[in-house]
């Protein structure tokens, strides 16, 4: 089967030759293609080169646009720092708080250089792998955009102490997030992946999840014209899935490595796709043998789940991870064999 067929079979709960898999190898493309991270995250063709190398070496069934949420902060005026061997981080925020953020102009999704960069990676990858490998457009939902523009503390302050301002900001930024997602779908992305940490009870109290987070997600996701992967974003998702159920267009849930896959499946029911859950950022500590054991245990537990995709959760797999460790995960998936409902 081609990767696209495998993923579509997963969406439909149909039989397939093996489970599909996705890995956060956004940064790792730099290692495989011999491109420095600062070039990878500035030049769309360099990023695409990296992902082409990822596809050739490891063969994931889904390719990702840059897992580079700071670029969205940059589009609003924040400034990033590029580490020597890591994904850029915001080092200077565009504003000090939510009220100031309300006055910021919205970036143009067709012309802002950082957004053009993100979109161009999707255009290049989807053109190359059309009909063969789905491409995922990686975004944040509007609840996770303010930390990239004003910092986590200022956003928490607004959510807790200035709910009307926070709500107004969500109403202003939700259409931007939806427009960008739709533009990415137009560029050839098959799915959109978005985080929603600041609608998660692990981070914020119920008055925020219910009064600000959920309405913002409903407005944004309802306006996106394609399927969405709700990504855990570093927080546990499984105990709180009830808070997210029923959101429009969410087709898949990408859970945290600490989450229980069987519990998540029980909470979700049979319909949605479940993705997880090896912790990517600590794979460099594994040996090929231990990585394979981790994967085999997950695959054995999920055997027979027609809507399961094996994935590495959280941030990027580090550059220091030996390729043999990643290959061991891939081998385990390939050895898992066919999946029948």
């Amino acid at each position: 089967m081609k990767s696209l067929e495998r993923v579509l079979a997963t969406v439909g709960g149909q039989p397939k030759d093996r489970p599909a898999f996705v890995m956060n190898l956004s940064l790792y493309g730099s290692k495989l293609a011999g491109i420095p991270p600062e070039v990878l995250y500035a030049d769309a063709s360099a990023y695409a080169q990296g992902q082409i190398a990822v596809r050739e070496v490891f063969g994931p069934d889904l390719l990702l646009s840059p897992f580079l949420v700071p670029a969205l902060g940059e589009a609003f005026g924040s400034v990033s720092a590029t580490g020597r061997s890591q994904v850029p981080n915001i080092r200077q925020f565009a504003t000090r708080g939510a009220r100031e953020a309300l006055a910021l102009p919205l970036p143009d999704v067709d012309s802002h250089p950082r957004i053009v960069y993100l979109r161009e990676t999707i255009r290049t990858l989807s053109a190359r792998y059309q009909g063969e490998v789905p491409v995922v457009g990686v975004l944040v939902s509007p609840v996770d955009l303010p930390p990239l523009v004003m910092g986590v503390e200022a956003w928490l302050e607004a959510l807790l102490s200035e709910p009307d301002t926070a709500r107004a900001l969500m109403e202003r930024w939700a259409p931007f997030c939806a427009d960008l997602a739709n533009a990415m779908l137009g560029d050839g992305a098959t799915l959109i992946a978005a985080t929603a940490n600041f609608a998660n009870p692990t981070l914020v109290p119920p008055r925020v999840t219910q009064g600000i987070g959920r309405p913002a997600l409903e407005a944004t996701f309802g306006a996106i014209r394609g399927p969405i992967i709700l990504h855990h974003g570093g927080a546990r998702l499984e105990p709180h899935l009830d808070a997210y159920l029923g959101l429009p267009n969410v087709a898949a849930y990408f859970v945290d490595a600490r989450d229980s896959l069987p519990q998540a499946r029980r909470r979700l029911g049979e319909g949605p796709i479940l993705i997880g859950n090896v912790h990517g950022p600590t794979l460099e500590n594994e040996t090929p043998e231990s990585a394979r054991s981790l994967a085999e245990a997950i695959l054995a537990e999920r055997a027979g789940d027609p809507r399961f995709i094996f994935g590495t959760s959280a941030a990027d797999i580090p550059l220091a991870t030996p390729p043999e460790v990643i290959t061991a995960l891939v081998d385990a998936v390939c050895a898992a064999g066919s999946v029948a409902p």
Binding site: L159, T202, P239
Partner: peptide, 10 residues
């Protein structure tokens, strides 16, 4: 009782 980041922050 499922403590949250917001509680720790406050």
């Amino acid at each position: 009782g499922e403590t949250s980041l917001a509680q720790g922050y406050v």
